[in-house]
Design a protein around this nucleic acid. Sequence first.
RNA 1: CGGGGCGUAGCUCAGCUUGGUAGAGCGCCUGGUUUGGGACCAGGAGGCCGCAGGUUCGAAUCCUGUCGCCCCGACCA
Length: 512
Amino acid sequence: MATPRTAISPTREENYPEWYQQVIRAADLAENSPVRGCMVIKPWGYAIWENIQRSLDARFKATGHRNAYFPLFIPLSFLEKEAEHVEGFAKECAVVTHHRLIPGEHGGLVPDPDARLDEPLIVRPTSETIIGAMFAKWVQSYRDLPLLINQWANVVRWEMRTRIFLRTAEFLWQEGHTAHATADEAMAETMQMLDVYADFARTEMALPVLTGRKSPGERFPGAVETFCIEAMMQDRKALQAGTSHFLGQNFARASDIQFLDEHGQRVHAWTTSWGVSTRLIGGLIMAHADDDGLVLPPRLAPAHVVILPVAFKAENPQHVYDWCHALAADLRRVQYGGRPVEVEVDERDIRGGEKSWSWVRRGCPIRLEIGPRDIAQDAVFMGRRDRPASEKVAVPRAEFIDRVAGILEEIQSAIAQRALAFREEHTVRIDSAEDFRAFFTPPEAPDGAPTPIHGGFALAHWSGDAEVERRLNEDLGVTIRCIPPGGGDDEPGTCPFSGRPSPKRVVWAKSY
RNA sequence: CGGGGCGUAGCUCAGCUUGGUAGAGCGCCUGGUUUGGGACCAGGAGGCCGCAGGUUCGAAUCCUGUCGCCCCGACCA
């Protein structure tokens, strides 16, 4: 019975923001919590994060970095040390002012006025300053460099408007912090980590990303240069999925990170920082999920294969279960993406259709329905998440075990291709102000309805004029997402807005 | 932080205009019939109607305030 019904309602086309939230719920990834702006990441969602962590952490270690941990609290005076940094983060800091509660006059508990902290502490929005303070102690000589540190942590940014996974008041991330003897070395590190992110996104997340430099207006507060990976979501908006910053000597001066070089000169170190966050999960959802729920790239899926025993009418149900568990054991001996194939056997006592759909919604790459008929033929009945849910095929058991890693890689590659094709379809070169405006002007929508899906990535010339950038942001809500590396693949031209000469095209889009 | 919308059962929502004992569908529990696909029958559990004040004999309903969520904007990973 081919049901036109989708598992997620509304569909992407009908109401994209609402669809996004429904996918998160249907896939059991996370929920809003009683704490304003803060989410609870549920086991299925957290397992995806753990896979992201494992995969990135291996890449960080392979490039010589070591993990460490720095305090959640940062003395207020530390934040004040770097002028631009203050400006960037002061507006959204949670501040700790007391260290004790006492009974209040009207019941409940209140901060004890006698327990006020001499110096307030802020909850870290990022850790440049506290890590800088430690680097200042650890770096004495050029022989101590480079210093290559990463931290997995939570941070807090008191955002006005939150969206689960994409922008929450508290989020999980990693922040790499490094110190180097020369500018060149620090810049090389910045670019290396940008490449690590890009490779991770493409290889593990099946997420095509553009890399490039941020315009001055979009730079990290305090950075000399910010580089980013940018991905297109299915509503054609851009998501900044990771950033890598060349901090020059700004933070070294602020935190007094100095060393004696080989000539005995006392000089400031050159530092970098780079990070990705649980926002990546939001990107994963918006890039790959469909109207039936989440679609997970196999490399990051908490379970690669779910086995659904169909045992209700078997003469010997236990035989079906045993057969399924034996199959699971054999599958777990296969390696995929650097880890054993992960298999779940779903023995929940609910109807088969419902059980099957629950795994569709959660994005499990391969579903195997196995009943007496399959067992009699020594076969499995396979559904793939990159194909329609009704499209299922019988595969001999031995062949499936043989091919499972290859099928997973096919799925990985299929969703990467689909995402890439989508981005290319909605990326256009634009050479006139009128075309640009038309491209980014949404169709009419009824009152209260979300803005219909429109736009995409516009490749247009830009002379470097900040005023043009500011005005387009104001008029159309469009920003420069990144300035592609090198000369780009384009000849110099003319900015369609100012008429000034432009060295190359930059990527414009609406963004999250 | 500005504009708009919404908070009633786990979920989706009705009831509110015109105040008078809290509703539906789905989900959940029990029993039965079912089962290669998002079942059916019967019975059942579950709500201080976001929270706090006010008006009233009486408030889910009217008024004020507040908190939260969603959309659009400004700001940001």
